[in-house]
């Protein structure tokens, strides 16, 4: 079985995101970029499945400019066998990404597709669901545990009420949550090995996928700054101050 894992290049989770002055986006100048943490968990799970002897090949795929090759190389260094870059200079929305991934699925015929439950930049949480619908295969989202049993997989999902365990037929799309696993550190010699692993580049146009603009981003704005507080002497003053502001 082949496993396909989606990887997105995002602003690193440690970075304090700053909105550009004109509200057209966030500042990425000199900012550290990383693999979306949920995608890293997805890849870790795929690698564990392969190491347990339940898959033969793990393929990482990313859509974006050539800079996303850096994240694909990270995936290869972690242990993926090969990488595919869907090349585009456009900023893609989830539906376009799902359509592009479907084209890759048609070429590669994976038995399992594992994605992060969402990317930490847009927080959309749509690509996996859309992909399953387009592919007309089962989906198991927000997975925190996965057990493969031949043609099916038993998946534990994190839902509002607690944990839900479902069984899906394979092939399926699984999107993973934080508690699925803790990704491994990359071994230094594996970075060298990753440089020699295959990384195919396919343009979005060659896949026959057009960039659609179903969603239009109006503007970005930072959350309002917290106003300076005042110190009150006692509860009476506190009540008075709250009243003055019309809060009680």
């Amino acid at each position: 079985m082949k496993i396909l894992v989606g990887i997105k290049r995002v602003v690193d989770y440690n970075v304090r995101v700053r909105v550009l002055n004109d509200g057209s986006g966030v500042d990425t100048d000199g900012v550290k970029m990383s693999v979306n943490p949920f995608d890293e968990i997805a890849l870790e799970e795929a690698l564990r499945i392969k190491e347990a002897g339940n898959a033969e090949e793990v393929i990482v795929v990313s859509a974006g400019g050539d800079e996303c090759q850096q994240q694909l190389r990270t995936g290869l260094a972690m242990g993926a066998d090969r990488a595919i870059q869907i090349q585009t200079s456009e900023s893609l929305q989830p539906l376009s990404v799902a359509r592009a991934l479907l084209k890759i699925i048609e070429r590669e015929q994976p038995g399992l597709v594992i994605l992060g439950k969402q990317a930490i930049d847009g927080d959309n949480s749509q690509t996996g669901q859309m992909l399953a619908a387009l592919w007309d295969r089962p989906q198991a989202t927000f997975a925190s545990k996965m057990v493969l049993n031949g043609d099916t997989a038993t998946i534990t999902r994190e839902v509002d009420a607690g944990l839900e365990t479902i069984e899906v037929d394979l092939p399926a799309v699984v999107t993973v949550d934080l508690r699925m696993n803790e990704p491994r550190f990359v071994k230094l010699p594996d970075i060298m090995k990753a440089k020699r692993k295959p990384l195919d580049v396919i343009s979005l146009g060659d896949l026959g996928v057009s960039v659609d603009g179903n969603l239009k981003i109006h503007h970005f704005a930072p959350p309002p700054q917290r106003q300076k507080g005042i110190m009150v002497e006692d509860t009476a003053q506190l009540v008075q101050e709250l009243k003055n502001r019309g809060l009680i």
């Binding site: 803790e182 990704p183 491994r184 550190f185 071994k187 230094l188 010699p189």
Partner: peptide
């Protein structure tokens, strides 16, 4: 190279990776 995945108590964690 320093080991990675060592706990506060100095014991290796699940993610332990020996430095080369």
């Amino acid at each position: 190279i320093g080991d990675m995945g060592v706990g506060r108590d100095g014991q290796p964690k699940d993610t332990f990776m020996q430095g080369i």
